[in-house]
Design a protein around this nucleic acid. Structure first.
Length: 494
DNA sequence: CAGATGC
């Protein structure tokens, strides 16, 4: 194996690629100039481990353009020889009139977001290469793979042709909702492959073979359906992994994901396009996915540029556990009245329930969700929150990834995210995903990290260092004024 | 002990 990627590394550019409102005007500038170079407001960086036999693509600065873009980004792109022109309009993508109607009428989009402009040509244009794509939280990744799936399906065939695998049933349902909305005029059908209880349960023996064209679900159920020959894989044209780094992580869903991927490749005689999307790919996962998904295009964002500018992060030093509850009651609930919605992250299922109980007992209205709840109950909690009926939701990392609720502008890390085996080691990816629940599509948001122990301090410092991003300290945890100042600083209060 | 899933 000759590992000789020749990647040019143009000058650093100290700008962040913030998440853009998809219906805002943007000017994506990725236009091909030569077969080896692409100009845009982006840059290339070395990616030695992942490049392997791929020829590299240099993406260069494009000075003088994009002045009105809210925040330009730096992505690393590695292509395998193809030349792509970024799509500045959805019309540039050869989408069907029905899909364009869905994009404009149902979704209300005006122009593609950055990741959409760059990745959609790679996804949609022949030879429909595999793609590993990293993009910021809330930047419109779902639209990328939903359009990919919708445009590759032949509506006349009543058989599964697209499969999307997600880490949680909540994310599966959410992605299906987007797909149904965007694909409203296409007549394309879809089905969620997720565990069901009372309401929708059908035993395997009674289950009919699936005729829906797009399947979205969680690994276990998909594997089960494939094994039972209820979900045919032979006509599969496109396979999507949402939150792909987690789906292919060793301590994640790697085994199931690989098995499904191999089965599809075997039965569809290798003609299935694979798309991996996530906001995070740590170096270990990056190296693995580049091997698992061969001969594909790759788009990466450097970790220092991944924290969202529009989300202000704070840390609150609390003397003990009890004072954390006091902060939730006296500060978070107090201010949350006049803000949007709030998500409070805790580490365990048990603490989700405990915190919920102790808040309820004193009349603070909130709900909580975690994986031990019955599926039906989970659905109800999510629906109430999405409908805006509840303002404060306590959750485990069940909702850390992908959960999209535009009204959320406050995130509280009641417990910091740490690696499971080693509580001194932060889970950087989870931290980034959690804070990304606020400030969807470039909206303003605030994050409060509650720290009690020395250990919490250390974990927080590591997080700050990792993302090269300073997190401001709330001077005094009891001070109303200090919290008020922080929220003003975040742009959430006047 | 997060998460999904299944024995």
């Amino acid at each position: 194996m000759a590992d000789t990627p020749s990647v040019t590394k143009p000058e650093e550019k100290k700008k962040l690629w913030g998440d853009e409102e998809p219906d805002q005007n943007e000017s994506p500038l990725l236009t091909a100039s030569t077969s080896a170079e692409v100009s845009s407001g982006t840059k290339a960086a070395a990616s030695n481990e992942v490049a392997n036999d791929l020829s590299s693509l240099v993406i260069e600065e494009h000075p003088g353009e994009g002045l009105d873009e809210p925040d330009d980004s730096n992505i690393t792109a590695v292509t395998s020889g193809e030349v792509y022109t970024s799509a500045s309009r959805f019309e540039d993508l050869n989408l069907s009139p029905e899909l364009l109607q869905g994009i404009y009428n149902e979704m209300g989009f005006k122009t593609p977001s950055k990741i959409q402009a760059v990745s959609l040509p790679m996804i949609l244009n022949p030879p429909n290469k595999n793609l590993i794509a990293q993009a910021h939280n809330g930047s419109g990744k779902t639209t990328c793979f939903v359009l990919g799936m919708l445009s590759r399906v032949d509506p006349s065939k009543r058989i599964p042709q697209a499969l999307c695998i997600c880490p949680t049933r909540e994310l599966s349902l959410q992605n299906q909702a987007v797909l149904l909305k965007m694909g409203k005029y296409t007549g394309i059908t879809s089905k969620c492959a997720i565990p069901m209880d009372s309401s929708g349960y059908v035993s395997m023996s009674r289950m009919l073979p699936i005729s829906e064209q797009i399947i979205i679900g969680t690994p276990g159920t998909i594997k089960k359906w494939v094994t039972a020959k209820k979900l045919a894989t032979r006509e599969m044209k496109i396979l999507v992994f949402d939150e792909a780094d987690h789906m292919l992580a060793e301590d994640g869903f790697r085994d199931d994901s690989e098995r499904i991927m191999k089965e599809i490749h075997r039965s569809s005689s290798g003609s299935c396009q694979v798309l991996l999307f996530s906001a995070t790919f740590n170096e270990t996962v990056k190296a693995f996915v580049a091997r698992a998904v061969k001969d594909g295009n790759q788009l990466y964002v450097k970790k220092e540029q991944l924290t969202l500018n529009a989300i202000k992060q704070f840390k609150v030093r609390c003397p003990d556990e009890l004072s954390k509850i006091a902060v939730i009651k006296d500060k978070i609930f107090e201010f949350a009245q006049n803000l949007g919605q709030t998500i409070i992250f805790v580490r365990t299922r048990n603490s989700a329930t405990m915190l919920h109980q102790s808040l309820l007992k004193e009349g603070y209205e909130c709900t909580s969700i975690q994986g031990a709840l019955k599926q039906d109950d989970r659905d109800v909690i999510i629906k109430e929150f999405k409908d805006g009926l509840t303002k404060v939701l306590i959750t485990t990392d069940l909702l850390a990834r992908g959960f999209d609720q535009a009204q959320v502008n406050l995130v509280v890390n009641y417990d910091l995210p740490v690696k499971h085996g080693s509580p001194l080691e932060p889970d950087y990816e989870v931290y980034l995903h959690r804070i990304g629940r606020a400030g969807r599509f470039g909206r303003k948001g605030a994050v409060f990290n509650l720290l009690v122990s020395e250990r919490d301090q250390t974990v927080m410092e590591k997080i700050e260092r990792y993302f090269e991003h300073n997190v401001a300290q709330i001077p005094e945890w009891r001070s109303e004024e200090d919290f008020k100042a922080a929220l003003k600083d975040s742009g959430l209060l006047e």
